[in-house]
Write a protein that binds this DNA or RNA. Structure first.
Lengths: 345, 345
DNA sequence: CATTAGGTTGTAATCGATTGCAATTTAGGC
DNA sequence: GCCTAAATTGCAATCGATTACAACCTAATG
């Protein structure tokens, strides 16, 4: 187990100083061509590799960024991360992953943990709906020296940039589409509306209704977790109503899938008896056999890339007059069979 | 933009030395109770946080591990990563993600890049089937000071531990199951057999055939990429044969899905006319409406956890007599409708 | 009262690389 | 042959924390 070679080893071997070796390796300074060549050759031959830790300590830049997500094993988040990684790696950055599992207390812990390892920035999707009230978080914001960027699940906090999708538009388009299909009694599977994303989808839904002269009915809105089982539960509730709805706009693909299962098993047809629209364009929505699911694509890869770009701008921006950016991507409704009464292949 | 407080700041404020402060913060050494208390209080009040970079440089441990995968936005790999992260975070480690996109040249680049940032270990799933012939990789192995652990796609390399699933058994069980369903002419959608995982699935398939007195037919084995389109293409080839098979064992869920689509669209029924088994237990295999897909679960979460555990053992093992571990998880056949002729809900 | 042991704290080197400033060498001009 | 300026290279501090060793102080003991 040999030790790694350092610039001191090279210097010793050549009867030079570490300073000279360092300069020779970094090309820029005035070093004679001879020594430069000599150093470069020796470095190669001794398998020298720069220790980025030492560099990071000296320069104050670790070239690491932290990414915090509720979980990584969902297509949406792993796609965002993929986008971030692809954008940042060519610039010399590495991506450190943290999961919160939606546990609010873990979120601050992970932020602090990332700051401790001196990340140059943090990109995160919020798990804690009350994040802005957290003491630790506020401290972080106030002594802001590390760029923080929200994606998807954000909070409106002064000085914090964000990259999101236009959830209002997504909700609006989805609902409008259902109305165009002839649906008049449209239910909505919402989620914790303390999160902007869910609230905005809800608001888009509501606006589309009113724009089309349909009265909003509170009883048709059900708060649902983003999973199959909760989607079933919600659908059951709706089907058991005196006047069941003729369509469901779900803020989650997983809940939409659960709803579809429950509806079908209750003997109803989709889309004839009930149209369904999901949200996120999860891979399985395309893979359904009979009832491919209409959904809203959020372009997570682009979201990751954009978030990374915002980070790069902020980290390159040394002035204190940092401009906060709130980038909003445009979602796209993808119409499939679950909501399309005149669907044909 | 305040600077971070260091132990020197604390020392200065208290008229002490950084050494004393350091010791006080690290509890263990002989420091008078008074100073210890004083230091702790001042540290809290000044918002002191240990700079892990400095610590890493001093101790030679970065508490970062690198994970290299072909891509992160697939359920299998993101689940493995989830397992790794969950296992290592409580031990103080952070996980750095790298993707290779199956580009062979990128693999070595990423390894070197991770070594440069002084990761304490690398966990990887191989993209390059010829990795062991690569010069850079060999160098890495020879001056081994950073634990390297393979998961899923491994190579048999002396001194390198691995965590894999028993692909042979997976292939064997899948094929045996098809035989038990009455199938006699079983095709296999293979993949690049330079990778152990695909070769072992193939060998398991072959063994199950011979154990049951079925002759192996080379023409029923088709090399297929792990995606839907290629699965369709392969199924087309099989359907166009003079004597088409009565079952398909695919080494990929995605290819299995493509095959199912092609088969159904050609007017055949599954499982009556053709049984299909996939591999990986991707989420969508469970979500299919008519034909949920029989598949083999590889327990990626466990794989990640185990790989992380092996890393922890190796990194804690200072002796040079490091024992190489080759952990093999047992896969589980999950029978669903696509292969089960007497299926009932 | 002097010696000594034990308890505390300081000194300085270390990890590996960078960089302002000083020192040295070299070349060129007269 | 001498002086000056330019070209190279060395010196030493720095980033923040740890730690072996030395130094100091205090109090107890003979």
């Amino acid at each position: 187990m040999k030790k790694k070679t350092t610039i001191y080893d090279i210097a010793a071997k050549l009867g030079l100083t570490a300073a000279t070796v360092s300069r020779a390796l970094n090309n820029n300074v005035k070093i004679s061509l001879n020594t430069r060549k000599l150093v470069l050759e020796t470095a190669l031959e001794m398998n020298y590799e720069q220790n980025k830790l030492a560099l990071a300590l000296k320069s104050g830049k670790s070239y690491n960024v932290g990414v915090i997500v509720p979980r990584i094993d969902s297509n949406f988040f792993s796609s965002v991360i993929r986008g971030i990684e692809e954008e940042l790696y060519p610039k010399g950055y590495h991506v450190i992953i943290c999961q919160t599992h939606n546990q609010e207390n873990l979120e601050i812990e992970k932020i602090n943990s990332l700051l401790n390892v001196q990340v140059d920035g943090i990109l995160m999707s919020i798990s804690n709906a009350n994040l802005e009230n957290d003491k630790g978080f506020n401290k972080l914001i106030r002594n802001k020296r590390t760029p923080l960027i929200f994606f998807d699940r954000k909070k409106n906090i002064k000085g914090v940039s964000s990259v999101t999708v236009d959830d209002f538009k997504g909700g609006y388009e989805a609902t409008k589409h259902l109305i165009e299909q002839g649906c008049r009694r449209i239910a909505h599977l919402s989620n914790d509306r303390k999160f902007e994303i869910f609230n905005n989808r809800f608001l888009g839904y509501k606006k589309a209704l009113s724009d089309n002269g349909i009265e909003f009915d509170e009883s048709l809105v059900i708060e649902t977790q983003s999973n199959v089982l909760d989607g079933r539960r919600a659908a059951r509730l709706l089907l058991d109503m005196e006047t069941p709805p003729d369509a469901i706009f779900s803020s989650s693909d997983f809940a939409a899938l659960g709803a579809i299962q429950e509806i079908k098993e209750s003997g109803f047809n989709i889309p004839e008896d009930m149209c369904v629209v999901g949200f996120s364009n999860e891979p399985f929505t395309r893979f359904m056999e009979l009832t491919t699911i209409t959904t809203v694509d959020q372009f997570p890869l682009d979201m990751g890339r954009k978030a990374a770009q915002v980070f790069l701008e902020e980290v390159g921006n040394t002035e204190d007059t940092k401009t906060t950016q709130n980038i909003v991507l445009t979602p796209e409704l993808i119409v499939r069979r679950s909501s399309s009464k005149k669907w044909k292949d």
